[in-house]
Simulated assay, not measured.
Amino acid sequence: MSWLVLVLSGVLEAVWATALSRSEGFTRLGPSVLFLVALALSMSGLAFAMRELPVGTSYAVWVGIGAVLTMTYAMVTGAESLSALKLICVAAIVGGVVGLKVLP
């Protein structure tokens, strides 16, 4: 259960990061509200997962999922340039996150 909550919290991290960029310094109401809600839920989920999972692993997985999804979304929408080197770096983050899950 903790791993599922952690993964969902990582997804919400990507949501709040993207909403933060779209809030234009908190001058747009919709993205600002989405940012606050997603941030609260993401942090709550991370805190829940840390009750059973090690802090280092939890935080690294949470950040990794959020970073990969945020970067992927930015590349798909054209907000971030796409290159083979960036894709390799994103794949390295995914590999690290998977490694943290499968290693004892």
Rank of each mutant, 00 (worst) to 15 (best):
residue 32 S to A: 14
residue 34 L to E: 02
residue 16 W to S: 09
residue 50 M to E: 14
residue 56 G to M: 10
residue 9 S to C: 07
residue 54 P to N: 13
residue 28 R to H: 14
residue 14 A to L: 14
residue 52 E to P: 02
residue 4 L to C: 03
residue 92 A to N: 05
residue 5 V to F: 01
residue 52 E to V: 10
residue 19 A to E: 06
residue 56 G to L: 07
residue 7 V to A: 11
residue 18 T to W: 10
residue 89 C to I: 05
residue 32 S to V: 00
residue 67 A to M: 12
residue 42 S to T: 08
residue 90 V to T: 13
residue 10 G to C: 04
residue 45 G to A: 06
residue 20 L to T: 08
residue 77 T to A: 08
residue 30 G to D: 01
residue 62 W to G: 01
residue 53 L to N: 00
residue 70 T to S: 14
residue 98 V to Q: 06
residue 63 V to T: 05
residue 74 A to G: 15
residue 75 M to E: 04
residue 2 S to Y: 06
residue 24 E to C: 09
residue 19 A to W: 10
residue 27 T to Y: 10
residue 21 S to M: 14
residue 10 G to F: 04
residue 81 S to T: 05
residue 70 T to Q: 08
residue 11 V to P: 06
residue 101 K to H: 12
residue 11 V to Y: 03
residue 53 L to G: 07
residue 45 G to P: 05
residue 54 P to V: 02
residue 1 M to S: 12
residue 46 L to D: 04
residue 7 V to I: 13
residue 16 W to I: 00
residue 43 M to I: 12
residue 7 V to S: 05
residue 94 V to E: 11
residue 5 V to M: 07
residue 103 L to D: 03
residue 15 V to A: 11
residue 43 M to F: 12
residue 59 Y to W: 13
residue 27 T to F: 08
residue 91 A to L: 12
residue 16 W to F: 15
residue 1 M to C: 02
residue 50 M to K: 04
